[in-house]
Design a protein around this nucleic acid. Structure first.
Length: 429
RNA sequence: GGAGAGGUGGCAGAGUGGCCUAUUGCAUCACCUUGCUAAGGUGAAGUACCGGCAACGGUACCGGGGGUUCGAAUCCCCCCCUCUCCGCCA
């Protein structure tokens, strides 16, 4: 959520931001919010005056005897009725304002490239070289099925498409890479978190997934809870409603959790293998810090670096793209995606997503801190990035490190998690 | 699932219809005192919105929402959360 003051002072920036994100209907929310705000600003002083009058009269009444009160009571009742009508209007306007304001997207930063969708994201870095196999490489699903590591057929029969069973060494590799990611971040001062997976609407709203993301979310209607699509939701909401002290900041968390996504509207897309599935595990890094743009940007680079270091340790070629306006989500101010080379897809594909929000989420969550210098209470800045998401990362791991005979070479850093083994699987081909 | 007790400012904790403009303590900030330390004294200070260049003034806020009343932290209803006991259970 943006500050209504920002909208008053610079509505053009908010409108232009929505346009840059290719969300023209959200740009209209700026004007609707301002219209409601104007009416509210006319109403509030009037109501305040009336309430003051009522309050003073009540106080005077309290000092009178029952008989003396009588003549004044009628007037008080009339005033009360008048106030009641206006208060109802005020309440309606406040609710409408919050609704419209929550539809206004965060303003994309200057370093967000113009563009309509993910085809116009801008590459900023490339690391590693695409391997020359010397044989025809197989897809991850082919390798995994041949090794007896993967069954999507039975999973789909039982649970619907985009589900999977992992078995044996692939199930262990899945756990190993997640565990490695947690250990890497804990070693860099992040606090490990195991968060709730079912959350109330307030957490979904606060992190900016609602309104808008309802179709993407599994909902437990009976309990009015939502299955999280990312640990960003519970972890960023962790200090919601709190007033932190500046010396408690920054808060750095690394959460490993299950993630659930309906993937509605993606029929036919990425249907095979482990790329797009309904449930997966993700290790997510979340930072909450003071309201300082330069520090947010520095954190942003740091969390991208953490993910890069993990990919480099796993010997996986990747590139970084600056996500363009049209591909940017509603709450983000700027986002880098990291795309890892997947031989079967012949392309770099998204495995990580690093976002900075400034105070957009914090305002929705009421996540504030008291500055050391005793100044005004401020909203925090928040950021997050994937460290690893699996089984998606198993695609590049299997495909880039496959050998001619169908076995898979393990990167050095993962070996301790798999009993010191250097190779997984048995020769097939 | 059943029964009971609670939720008050950054924290602790008083407050059972008008003297609440929320007592007090801790922590915070400023100044003073005691040769250091420990401690003591005086004062300032909640959050949001509105008006004002400002000092300041007004209104709202006592877990959330609704109600009763001229007037609600206080009484009533619904919801959320915490604690205790019972039941069930990995």
């Amino acid at each position: 959520m943006l500050d209504i003051k920002v909208l008053r002072e610079n509505p053009d920036a908010a409108r232009a931001g929505a346009i840059k994100k290719r969300l023209p209907d959200r740009a209209q929310a700026v004007d609707r919010a301002l219209a409601i705000d104007a009416e509210l600003r006319a109403l509030t002083p009037k109501l305040d005056g009336m309430r003051g009058e009522q309050k003073n009269a009540s106080k005077a009444l309290g000092k009178l005897s029952a008989a003396e009160r009588e003549p004044f009571l009628q007037k008080q009742k009339e005033l009360k009725a008048e106030i009641g009508v206006l208060e109802e209007r005020e309440k309606q306007l406040e609710a409408d304002l919050k609704q419209q304001l929550s539809l206004v997207p965060n303003i994309p930063d200057e370093d967000v490239p113009e563009g309509k969708d993910d085809t116009e994201n801008q590459e900023t870095k490339r690391w590693g070289s695409v391997r020359d196999f010397g044989f025809t490489p197989k897809g991850h699903d082919e390798i995994a099925e041949a090794q007896g590591w993967l069954d999507t057929k039975r999973a789909s029969d039982m649970a619907g498409s985009r589900n999977y069973f992992l078995f044996g060494d692939l199930a262990l590799l899945h756990d190993a890479v997640l565990r490695f990611a947690v250990d890497l971040l804990v070693g860099r001062g992040f606090t490990a978190v195991d968060p709730p997976l079912l959350v109330r609407d307030a957490a979904m709203f606060g992190t900016g997934f609602f309104p808008g993301g309802e179709e993407q979310t599994y909902r437990a209607e009976k309990d009015e809870l939502n299955l999280i699509g990312t640990a960003e939701v519970p972890v960023t909401s962790l200090h919601s409603g709190e007033m932190l002290a500046e010396d408690q900041l920054p808060k750095k968390y690394v959460a490993r959790s299950m993630c659930f996504r309906r993937e509605a509207g993606t029929y036919g897309k990425d249907q095979r293998g482990l790329y797009r599935v309904h449930q997966f595990q993700k290790v997510e890094q979340v930072i909450v810090d003071i309201a300082d743009k330069a520090r947010s940007i520095a954190h942003h680079h740091d969390i991208v670096k953490n993910a890069e270091d993990l990919l480099q340790a796993c010997e996986l070629p990747y590139r970084i793209v600056a996500v363009c306006g049209g591909d940017l989500g509603v709450p983000q101010a700027m986002k880098y995606d990291i795309e890892t080379w997947m031989p079967s897809r012949g392309n770099y594909c998204e495995t990580h997503s690093a976002s900075r929000f400034y105070d957009y989420q914090a305002r929705r969550l009421s996540l504030r801190y008291r500055p050391k210098d005793g100044g005004k209470v401020l909203f925090c800045h928040t950021l997050n990035n994937t460290v690893i998401a699996s089984p998606r990362v198993l695609i590049p791991l299997l495909e880039n490190h496959q050998q001619k005979d169908g076995t898979v070479r393990l990167p050095q850093v993962l070996r301790p998690y798999l009993g010191g083994r250097e190779v997984l699987g048995r020769p097939i081909w």
